[in-house]
Design a protein around this nucleic acid. Structure first.
Lengths: 196, 196
DNA sequence: ACCTGAACACCGTTCAAGT
DNA sequence: ACCTGAACACCGTTCAAGT
């Protein structure tokens, strides 16, 4: 052994991230371990530390992918919606993604890392998501000044995020999962009524 | 050693929970371990398992306390507010509590346990919180029928929870922590305008 | 240069053995 | 009856040693 060079550094990285995602999707965050990832890759633990400085950095990389996938999901939903429905489609897609990928979604918002440099990258993705919602709101409510726009968009996003969060953690079950759409309508009608 | 009987079962339970809380408050959830709690109590790990079946059960008990403390905090805030301000006071208290007790608050909503019996108790506390908000909203908007009331209260609570969640996880820093009040005003004005 | 395997310091959980 | 201490099967992380 040693000096196998079966895979490039980039391939190893890709394998590590996709195996980590597989474990998270299948068994949840708690079931993930560096050793388990390494075994799934067909390598030893030590090799993982040639690619990532530590477990936190690996999870951060997973989160960057998830955030990008969420962003792409929103863009898709917006692209296939009429201008009137764009904002609702984006909000609905946000909640859908969380429900469809509960473990990965939770990791993005629940991982508290002490590495400011890497977590800034996640932060940038989060701000991108927010900017997207803000722009949709601006198109619908052109009369809002920039400060009001910002605050309304933030309140709106907090509401959508809260619904996704409570839903994914099972704290909203009593409301009936079929009621999710109704809650969303109430939120959008209250904060961003369509101009008529 | 053995057969010390320095403390009753109830005292041991109380010591375990308060030491666990101390560690969580000081160092976060990740720093907590059964061994660390036991050492802080002046006992061996094995003793902890005479009181709690496993770590999950202990954390659940911590969460029940936190949920009760949150509930009490809301009641306090409501009690010292004018009828007009009750709803805003409750929402503000929710966010305040999360910011003042970030680690404990996060544990309540982030702990995913597989024990349906115990987690049902947390669920009951969550529903109590929701019922509280619903009753405040009902007082303010008596014209809503029960279905609309339920949905509006749910959307409102999701919004408040989302603000607390994003704030505590540092995902809302760009909005400026001083803007939190503004976001809350936007949410309340949109979903629960005071009757005039 | 790349990778291994063993080591270290931790975990949660169990349980025979002591008083 | 109450509590200990050692054991078991796991962790994350490091690093000398092998090719």
């Amino acid at each position: 052994m040693a000096r196998r060079s079966d895979h490039t550094r980039e391939q190893l990285r890709e394998m590590a991230l996709s195996q980590a995602e597989a474990v998270i999707v299948r068994d949840g965050i708690g079931a993930l371990s560096m050793r388990k990832i390494a075994k799934a890759m067909g390598y030893t633990v030590g090799t993982l530390y040639l690619i990532f400085p530590n477990q936190d950095a690996l999870l951060l990389a997973v989160n960057l992918r998830t955030a990008d996938a969420l962003h792409a999901h929103l863009l898709d939903a917006i692209a296939t919606a009429t201008p009137q429905q764009e904002l609702r489609a984006a909000a609905s897609a946000y909640i859908d993604f969380a429900q469809a990928n509960p473990h990965r979604w939770r990791l993005v918002f629940e991982l508290s890392t002490e590495q400011p440099d890497q977590s800034a990258q996640v932060q940038r993705r989060v701000e991108q998501l927010f900017a997207l919602i803000e722009s949709l709101l601006a198109a619908r409510q052109p009369m809002l000044d920039s400060a009001a726009l910002r605050q309304t968009a933030a309140a709106l996003w907090a509401g959508v995020h809260g619904m996704a969060s409570l839903h994914v953690t099972g704290k909203l079950d009593w409301a009936g999962s079929d009621q999710a759409g109704g809650m969303l309508d109430v939120l959008l009608d209250g904060l961003a009524p369509p101009v008529r």
